[in-house]
Design a protein around this nucleic acid. Structure first.
Lengths: 128, 128
DNA sequence: TCCTTATGTCGTAAACTTGCGACATACTAT
DNA sequence: ATAGTATGTCGCAAGTTTACGACATAAGGA
């Protein structure tokens, strides 16, 4: 891309500015985004409870059309949180438990970092 | 709202269908959404490291304008993840560590549920 | 072969998100 | 009072997300 292109995209930058944030911050945000819709949370829980299911089954248990569910599945698949393999006439979607375990650790580290810091109190300078 | 309104909103429903999802799923998705942007992750980490800061300071440390940072702060504030109180000419934003602790537990419960289920393997019906 | 069934893709509409400049407000100090 | 500084609000532009119908494709059976 050209120099002018860079200037233009900078001027009309409306997407998330990923540059200048750490890889960890971007990674956490990316996974959080995947979980940022109740349907996707429900899909993961459904897969966890059934251990194996197919797209049609999932749509039947959610208040969404098959197309929309498929879209959510693709989003989870893009992050490799779930996997799907064609098996004849049906598809087997399953959780990537290994990756989910890693993500869990990442979130835990973040929350511990956030909760171990002392909250503002009367003793602080701000006093709030 | 009227009956017609319901029909119309249903016809042109483009927002997240929150109905028919459990409260837990919606709650988790809501918090995940708050963390779904690197800037907001960075803000929480910054507040955790400083224990007390003000809006202007935060903007200075991020590659975003003051207005945009303020917007992200409002989003975190809407969920009560952070709190801000006016103190003369400055504002003290601080983490709601109590709530963050609760959220951490919620995420942990979700991830444990998702990772303890056996992943698909050769022994399964799907065989993937 | 042709029909059924199941999954994948495309296009579209409406709402939401992100980013920022410009303006408004409020407190402090001179 | 008035200037200066710091935070809050508004409105716009462009991109992304969500939802779904309609169509495409592929496997399996009558």
């Amino acid at each position: 891309m050209s120099y002018i292109y860079d200037i233009v995209t900078d001027l009309f930058m409306t997407t998330a500015k990923t540059t200048a944030f750490t890889t960890e911050q971007q990674q956490l945000a990316r996974v959080a985004k995947a979980l940022a819709h109740p349907a996707r949370v429900a899909i993961i829980q459904l897969l966890a409870s059934k251990q194996t299911c197919i797209s049609g089954d999932i749509a039947a248990e959610l208040p969404l059309s098959r197309t929309t569910v498929f879209q959510h599945l693709q989003e989870l698949k893009a992050l490799d949180l779930i996997r799907g393999e064609i098996d004849g006439l049906t598809v087997c979607y399953c959780l990537n438990t290994e990756l989910l375990r890693q993500v869990h650790q990442q979130f835990t580290a973040f929350f511990i970092e956030a909760t171990t810091s002392a909250a503002c109190g009367p003793a602080d300078a701000c006093g709030c």
